[in-house]
Design a protein around this nucleic acid. Structure first.
Lengths: 223, 223
DNA sequence: GAAAGTCCTTGATATAAATCAATCGATTAA
DNA sequence: TTAATCGATTGATTTATATCAAGGACTTTC
């Protein structure tokens, strides 16, 4: 946080993230209907958030990794409206929302940060609507892989290879496709020499080609 | 606002919504790339927000009516990332976001309200992902009509009939379908005696049947 | 190390929605 | 009033993805 805060101020802000919680792979951090008390900052590990229908259909609404915030869905109704499941053993900071609101009034920089985090989530979901409403399977998977590797790279990992933390079915649910379609699309990208896939391991061999798939109409001179 | 605020406080809060702006049908209130300065509360009229791709594909991300807030997408990057277009002549309150942040620090009730508005939008978009990822055309249109008429009813209009403010193409874009599919699905619901449609006029004849379409797996005893 | 359980891949076929095309109706302009 | 335009409907056909089905590759358990 880039501000002129003194030691006392820093201690107050630290109090937001004072308590931590471990979540084992497969466990839920919170689930639909739970009372909302806190936002969670992921310290380590990997989560999915998902909704389930009355008739059992599941929609994965996001995959979250270290440094990202989950739980924003709970603010509006004081209850969570989705499930947050750890896809690998994880540790989160529990940030009681009452504290966040109190300290936001005292520290404009925190207030601004909270607003940006929420707005970022809105913009991300706007992009998901574009993806789900307009893109073909290959475009969706290409955009998904580029987004994932970019976020991993921002955390110091490779910009070309990764280990997926989720199954084909979960990717499919996120992208509005069936697991078989995800599998076939991986195979297609692999046959085309654009990526290398071995189970959960993915390496991006030709990132430009992958980007071109997400922007199919781009003229060659623009690339 | 249900709080113990004195006259002076009320005047401060009113200052947020001091300036108004008229937007003619077809005009944009803001568009992708515009600097973000304000949120807008719709006083009268009807808007759509939409994203366009590099290659010209358009995704309608929402339809907004009186009392709803648009512009939240701009907070994260200080620039808007979508277009807001008036579908009929409209009037909005211009709410400078700097004022909102200042007064939110002073009035917890306003702070809370801002957080809920943003969270509500996140939850709505979660639901859209479920719709776009998992539902069939008939389910999407049924859910869309029920949502629209419910919001209109909350504003004092009929709970069974409405005039659509948007074209079939715009509905299709919102629901991830083509305009022909929207038209055919309207005709199907009409033939089944569930709704009556004449151009932009829609009347819901059998709301329970419409709800059943959105929850296809519900057993009869649950309805 | 065999068995069981997950997850993934691939093939054959079905299907919902898209696309292409023509017409119709309603509104606006001349 | 007649064009002209825009939006909506409907039909015929195509297509991308889903579905159904079988087998293969890892991983975990005992």
């Amino acid at each position: 946080m880039p501000v002129g805060l003194d030691v006392n101020d820093m201690q107050k802000l630290d109090s937001i993230v004072a308590t931590r919680k471990h979540v084992k792979q497969g466990q839920m951090l919170f689930s639909n209907g739970d009372p909302f008390t806190s936002l969670y900052a992921i310290r380590t590990g990997f989560f999915k958030t998902c909704l389930s229908n009355e008739d059992g259909r599941e929609q994965v609404t996001g995959f979250q990794m270290a440094g990202e915030i989950i739980g924003l869905d709970g603010i509006v109704s004081d209850h969570h409206s989705c499930n947050a499941v750890a896809l690998e053993d994880a540790e989160v900071c529990v940030m009681p929302f009452a504290n966040i609101e109190d300290l936001s009034r005292e520290f404009p920089v925190l207030q601004r940060h909270v607003h940006k985090v929420m707005s970022r989530e809105i913009v991300r979901e706007n992009g998901m609507m574009m993806m789900l409403g307009n893109m073909r399977a290959e475009e969706r998977l290409a955009a998904f892989l580029l987004n994932l590797v970019q976020r991993l790279h921002a955390r110091g990992f490779s910009q070309s290879e990764m280990i997926l933390r989720m199954t084909r079915e979960e990717i499919g649910s996120y992208l509005g496709l069936k697991l078989e379609t995800i599998s076939r699309t991986f195979s297609k990208l692999s046959e085309d020499g654009i990526i290398e896939v071995k189970q959960r391991y993915v390496r991006i061999l030709r990132p430009d080609e992958l980007k071109k798939i997400t922007n199919p109409q781009m003229s060659p001179s623009c690339s």
